[in-house]
């Protein structure tokens, strides 16, 4: 078990290191002067900001220093939480801009991942039981996983917000309200949260249901299932074992899918103008706010690494093979 965690942590540290290095490298190794590159694209900025930015960028890039010094400085700034200054919300530091967006991402991602994982697995296991259920579930499930998140968001928004007018179409809460701990405010937050949540939930649900259905069919063909059958164990017990064992590949599937899910959440936020990191990215691209983009990149990486680590811990809890330091494990 110690070896398992040491190995995982080593991989994550390496990953983080590589990611930060890429983050640092790219503006420097692109053709042309990175500072001018940035400023020339940020056309819509007012003159005062442009001047401040030029001075700030030149000194922060420190192009006159040796390359290794630039690299070390980049890491130092990072550990002080200094991700630069946002052009979009000038002169707010990038870290603050991201901090205020982060709760919305968590609000969408955590419930949608947990609920869809739970419901999808249950439903997939249920569908694997009967031919008729299976024949209807399978195509629906495949269509759902093949649906781009943002398109489902667009459809849901169009039907429920525009045509039926049940849910709001944009923002995190009504513009008429000020954030407060009141029922009206909470209700407004929930209403605005529902459609983006549903888009994320439905697509993921399809994937889990199919995955579980396929895994269970494999598990029911496993030797231990046949042995139990030969000993007259009731179907219920065999199915329960198969379900529990099928969770393991599903869990490593979750680790693999995190990147795609995060990307889906980003695009869904854009559809609903939901002010999380995805929406920030769109704004940052449209306004050429590179510091903000770099910051978003780092946050996404850290988030995905943390989530992976949590999955590793869960794996140790559910799979004796990882616990005993044998084979197996998420990634």
């Amino acid at each position: 078990m110690r070896r398992y965690f040491l190995r995982k942590i080593l991989i994550y540290l390496l990953t983080f290191f590589v990611a930060v290095t890429i983050d640092w490298m790219i503006p420097r190794f692109m053709p042309g002067d990175p500072v001018m590159n940035m400023l020339s694209k940020a056309g819509s900025m007012h003159a005062e900001a442009q001047e401040v930015m030029y001075g700030y960028l030149t000194s922060s890039f420190g192009l006159d220093l040796p390359v290794w010094q630039q690299y070390v400085n980049f890491w130092k700034a990072l550990f002080h939480g200094d991700l630069g200054i946002s052009i979009l919300q000038f002169p707010k530091p990038v870290i603050d801009v991201i901090k205020s967006a982060l709760p919305y991402d968590l609000l969408l991602l955590i419930p949608s991942i947990l609920l869809s994982y739970y419901a999808g697995n249950k439903f997939g296991a249920y569908a694997a039981r009967s031919k008729r259920m299976d024949n209807t579930l399978l195509p629906i499930g495949y269509i759902l996983t093949a649906t781009p998140y943002m398109w489902l968001g667009i459809l849901l928004g169009w039907v429920f917000a525009i045509i039926l007018n049940i849910f709001p179409i944009s923002g995190a809460y009504s513009y008429a309200l000020k954030p407060a701990l009141s029922w009206t405010f909470i209700k407004s937050v929930l209403e605005h949260w529902f459609l983006p949540f549903m888009s994320l939930f439905i697509v993921q649900f399809g994937g889990w249901a199919i995955g579980m259905r396929n895994m269970i069919i494999y598990e029911l063909e496993a030797d231990y299932a046949h042995y139990l059958e030969a000993l007259g164990a009731p179907r219920k017990l065999i199915r329960r074992y198969a379900y529990n064992n099928a969770q393991l590949p599903q869990l490593s599937g979750l680790a693999l899918k995190l990147g795609v899910i995060v990307a889906g959440a980003m695009s869904t936020e854009i559809v609903f103008s939901y002010p999380g990191i995805g929406y920030l990215i769109l704004m940052a691209i449209q306004n050429s706010d590179y510091y903000l983009l770099q910051g978003c990149f780092l946050f996404i990486i850290i988030g995905v690494l943390l989530a992976n680590f949590i999955i590793d811990i869960v794996f140790v809890l559910v799979d004796p093979r990882t616990r005993l330091g044998m084979q197996g494990g998420a990634s």
Partner: peptide
Amino acid sequence: SLIPQYAMSAMNPTR
């Protein structure tokens, strides 16, 4: 009762 060919993998690995 049966002692199967696959006795090496006959028991549920996660129980």
